[in-house]
Nucleic acid binder design. Sequence first.
DNA 1: GTCATTTACTTGGCATGCCAAGTAGATGGA
DNA 2: TCCATCTACTTGGCATGCCAAGTAAATGAC
Lengths: 158, 158
Amino acid sequence: MSSVGASVVDVNEDESARWMPAFLALLRTHARLTDLLELDVRRIGGLSVARFDVLTHLDMAGGRMGLSDLANAIVLSPSGLSKLLDRMEVSGLVERQPDPDDARSTLATITRHGRAVVRKTRRHHHAFLQQIFGDVLDDRDLADVMRIMARLDAGLPH
Amino acid sequence: MSSVGASVVDVNEDESARWMPAFLALLRTHARLTDLLELDVRRIGGLSVARFDVLTHLDMAGGRMGLSDLANAIVLSPSGLSKLLDRMEVSGLVERQPDPDDARSTLATITRHGRAVVRKTRRHHHAFLQQIFGDVLDDRDLADVMRIMARLDAGLPH
DNA sequence: GTCATTTACTTGGCATGCCAAGTAGATGGA
DNA sequence: TCCATCTACTTGGCATGCCAAGTAAATGAC
């Protein structure tokens, strides 16, 4: 699923950086969290997160989207999406249709089966998220998360 | 590199969960952070994070480790490590040697080249981490991160 | 001592992803 | 109108990962 990575674990030969424990905790907890989310989504309807993302966006968009928009929405390269849709078509989750307005473009369409699976998955998954994130943190925690993430974001290049 | 995933972005059809913004901020910032770390490691010496992890652990362990221990240390499946080492041998970063104490076991050994690359990478990478994480957060932020991650950890199944 | 288990890897097969290159249709300017 | 460019995808090739199955060696129970 995902690894914490020792990219930094043993880097402090010289000075034991004071921020290292917090950084490692962040990586580790995030890894555990996302692993669980991945497993949860997979458990409910057999979807990978990538497939779930595609179906979620299609469903929210009314059932169909242009591939470019879709790739952009789920942060996936065009080639990655192309191959993902190939596999999802085999699974009967989506279909491709030519765009009547632009012959270069292709529309991805969610199937009845795909819609049923994603809606079921979404219901259960949301409940799971509530349980392992929402119920655990209080308002102060949430505010702190927002503040810290904002500071990190602001400090990041670009 | 990595995607935030819409796994939860659009899940709140009914109630807009109050924790959603914090959760999304956590995912997004973590994704940006790890993408940058990946790029940084790659830029310095051409290593992927997986390769860097292997070399780091080997170097710290004095140059050689049993494959099982190594796989465990970097949180990688045995088959994943086996294939990773195949590729790293081709690149001249590591070598395999039979374990004199147990014919089932294999030792991974870092090469001179591997050692040079990982040490150079480590120096630069640590400085980068200091810059985008250590310099940005103050002691209160770090304490908050630790507290929140601990709460989440405690609430996670298992 | 012998055989069922366990342990340690390797391989084959599949899922994901990315980049580079190729194909085809759409567009803008001369 | 015609061609250089763009835009939208698809393909081929490679890197990572995981699981299931296969091979070999070490261990443990009798």
